[in-house]
Design a protein around this nucleic acid. Structure first.
Lengths: 248, 248
DNA sequence: CGGGGTGTTGAGTCCACTCAACCCTGGTGG
DNA sequence: CCACCAGGGTTGAGTGGACTCAACACCCCG
């Protein structure tokens, strides 16, 4: 086991980005009545570690873009079993599942002190009606969320415990890379239990899988600090990425 | 075991409905140059049992609304393992996962001889830019797909084999009801293997679960013919529908 | 110093899987 | 007409991977 380094808080916003960049002005601008046509209101909100952004069953008021920090979204069954359906990092948009029914089906919880941009949905929808490019971005955002869901579905339906953990790590690594962070050494923002609830595994199983990968020299694991030591082997273990046109 | 009744082909379109109703004119109308402004082109296509509507990796050309028949969508890993991600019945729209990346991530296969309406996507997108109401419908459609995905995710991550089968049957029953069919007696369009690939189970496990429910008098199962005999008990076994604001 | 939250590891259990046999039905061709 | 075969479904016996239960280590904080 490695010595556990200090859990220095990694700022999660090396490359500031926003799905609605260029279309959104903070409320301050609105108050000063300099709001330009072609933009929509957008209020900052700080969310403390463990606080809910919104909860399953809540009416849809706003959708949220993450500016800094991280979140998990989850669905809870009546008996308390929790399924984490995704993690949101800066640039991601939360709340899209509510657009159809006007009610949130998932609950989104901050994994650390975080900062979001609140987009009042009815105003946003109106703006989409005036702004084709914005509407198009929004469609793509939703479609990507569908595709991400299908990725998790195939993980849950098809993969062994180790494959799930490996696939999760590779996916997280890829997302960090896109945000401008190191894809090979990173800090997990979530507990083993969150990871397990995401991957359909118990926390002990996640821990065992990580230990196994560590012992084989593929990873260096020290609590939530992860270093990828053998990326090729990791990819081989995940191996079965979705295939295109089948040959059979 | 019941005697197996004749597999009479149930027409799947008691209540004709379409997500784009009122906005779409068949190509025939276009040829006659009577296409009104505010509508978009829409070509019928017949798909035979087992044929693909589109395949993972294909470029996005069109999205499809099911007019009659039924389909499964699936994701296949490199090693051939298949995960069914959903079933489409009349009124459903297939292909929404491709809008973001311009490539289909799933493959959609006809479960029987079926009939779809082909909507060329770029024309449709343009039309959405002119027609706010249409764009809004489309957003809801996509959002509902996200919500449905989250339902399957929590099923795969949290439920036992029997719970999965029960939840699947109740969901299928509800959809048939919405289409105007009997929710208590129906014909499954898919094989045990398709159901298993959807629920993350092997076909033998699906068969055993159905036999168990049959033996306890909760269902009457005869091949693909299903009759729900004790709906309350079935709901109790599924029991754990997603919960709202949690009390802990 | 005690306690709660988090993480690791071990021992034993059980549910869904694997492998296999068998049945039924519908289609095809001699 | 019947023989044959392939696809789909059911059931049984045995296995194994992830689970349950449990103990313990570590860290931060009051």
């Amino acid at each position: 086991m490695l010595s556990v380094p200090k859990a220095r808080p990694i700022p999660l916003l090396a490359r500031p980005m926003c799905a609605f960049e260029g279309y959104c002005r903070p409320v301050a601008a609105q108050r000063k009545e300099i709001l330009e046509p072609g933009t929509f209101v957008c209020a900052r909100r700080l969310v403390k570690h463990g606080e809910l952004l919104f909860c399953a069953g809540d009416d849809l008021h706003s959708i949220y873009t993450v500016k800094a920090g991280s979140f998990k979204s989850s669905v809870t069954l009546e008996d308390g079993r929790e399924q984490v359906t995704g993690f949101y990092l800066p640039g991601d948009v939360a709340g899209l599942d509510a657009v159809g029914s006007r009610r949130h089906v998932s609950t989104v919880t901050a994994l650390e002190h975080s900062d979001v941009c609140t987009v009042e949905y009815s105003a946003f929808e109106e703006e989409c009606g005036r702004n084709t490019d914005l509407a198009r971005r929004f469609s793509r955002l939703m479609s990507n969320e569908i595709a991400a869901g299908q990725g998790l579905i195939s993980l849950l339906g098809l993969m062994s415990a180790e494959e799930r953990v490996v696939t999760f790590l590779l996916g997280f690594s890829t997302r960090l890379l896109a945000l401008g962070y190191s894809p090979s050494e990173f800090h997990l923002r979530m507990t083993r239990e969150d990871i397990g609830d995401y991957l359909g595994l118990k926390l002990e199983t996640v821990s065992r899988a990580l230990s196994g990968l560590h012992d084989r020299g593929i990873l260096a694991v020290a609590g939530r600090e992860i270093a990828i030591r053998d990326l090729e082997e990791l990819k081989r273990l995940s191996g079965n990425t979705p295939a295109g046109r089948r040959t059979r």
